[in-house]
């Protein structure tokens, strides 16, 4: 048998109140091991309070070649942003 341990992506919450952030990846044979490895590899300097691991092959990704139709239409929707709306200067904090 010559097979590699699968690749996992590691997400760490640095402290409560923050979201889990992608920290990196690693290899592990199973989910338990992936968690344990993530703990030792990515939180050995006290960087986390919670870890998610997900096998990389389970992640669905958008493709860069679709970027024009995927992301560009959002670029000119200026009305989604507060600065689109004109208000008199007297109105503060809105």
């Amino acid at each position: 048998m010559k097979k590699e341990w699968p690749l996992w992506e590691v997400f760490v919450r640095s402290k409560n109140g923050l979201e889990h952030r992608h920290f990196g990846s690693l290899h592990a044979a199973d989910a338990e091991m992936a968690l344990a490895n993530a703990r030792d590899v990515y939180t050995r300097r006290n960087e986390g309070v919670s870890i998610w691991v997900v096998e990389s092959s389970n992640i669905t990704a958008s493709q860069p070649e679709n970027n024009p139709e995927f992301f560009e239409p959002a670029k000119d929707k200026v009305y989604r942003h507060p600065t689109f709306y004109d208000l008199p200067d007297e109105v503060k904090h809105m």
């Binding site: 048998m1 097979k3 341990w5 044979a29 199973d30 989910a31 338990e32 091991m33 998610w52």
Partner: peptide, 20 residues
């Protein structure tokens, strides 16, 4: 060792997984 861990994982897939 690496082979054993994989074989074990295949046998026990889906066992013990704690969902986020």
């Amino acid at each position: 060792v690496r082979d054993a861990a994989l074989a074990y994982a295949e046998k026990n897939a889906k066992k013990n997984i704690k969902k986020a």
